[in-house]
């Protein structure tokens, strides 16, 4: 034993200690990151992100709420354009209500208001409602794809996929 100890001088001892601590820290970090990754499932079973929303002729001028409950989408037809608005308030994700008498979307949580064209005008909402991708499939039916979002303040509302000419 004493021979072994003779060869392990102070400097070597500390370097061994350093390696030991580094290995311990790395192992702990590895375990923690595994635990962290564990909290993000690979698959989730949330509702479909795209849906077929009938024919363009089904919609009248104004706000249509038929897809609000199932898919969280308002179809708004105005000035020859049909757009699909997300029904999630840009402030804190509550669901605004369409108030036909005042012609505005009004959020019950913090009072944000949006015009029919989705622009925010009162309350704390920092930006307009988001548009979803809207297009026609081969049968001439409307497809709304919620994975693609178009935001006004980024100048994306001119994008051809963000509205449908009707």
């Amino acid at each position: 034993m004493s021979e072994v100890r003779k060869h392990l001088n102070r400097r070597e001892f500390f370097s061994a200690l350093t390696v030991g601590w580094a290995a311990f820290a790395a192992a702990s970090a590895g375990l923690l990151s595994l635990a962290f990754r564990f909290s993000y499932p690979n698959v989730n079973f949330e509702p479909e992100m795209d849906f077929v929303a009938g024919l363009p002729e089904d919609y009248e001028e104004g706000v249509d709420e038929r897809w609000k409950n199932g898919f969280g989408v308002w179809m708004v037809k105005q000035e020859g354009k049909l757009v699909a608005f997300s029904n999630i308030c840009t402030h804190l994700g509550c669901i605004p209500n369409w108030q036909p008498t005042d012609l505005k979307f009004k959020c019950p949580c913090h009072g944000s208001g949006f015009y029919m064209n989705g622009i925010n005008f009162e309350g704390p909402a920092p930006r307009p409602l988001e548009r979803y991708k809207i297009s026609l499939n081969t049968e001439g039916k409307i497809v709304v794809d919620k994975t693609k979002v178009y935001r006004y303040e980024k100048g994306q509302w001119d994008h051809p996929d963000s509205f449908l000419e009707v």
């Binding site: 402030h91 605004p96 209500n97 019950p108 949580c109």
Partner: peptide, 19 residues
């Protein structure tokens, strides 16, 4: 969403700040 939608009462100070 119910109207008004409120957080638990001890967070309402924070929710009021959101205004």
């Amino acid at each position: 969403a119910p109207n008004p939608a409120k957080a638990p009462w001890y967070f309402l100070g924070l929710q009021e700040m959101l205004v």
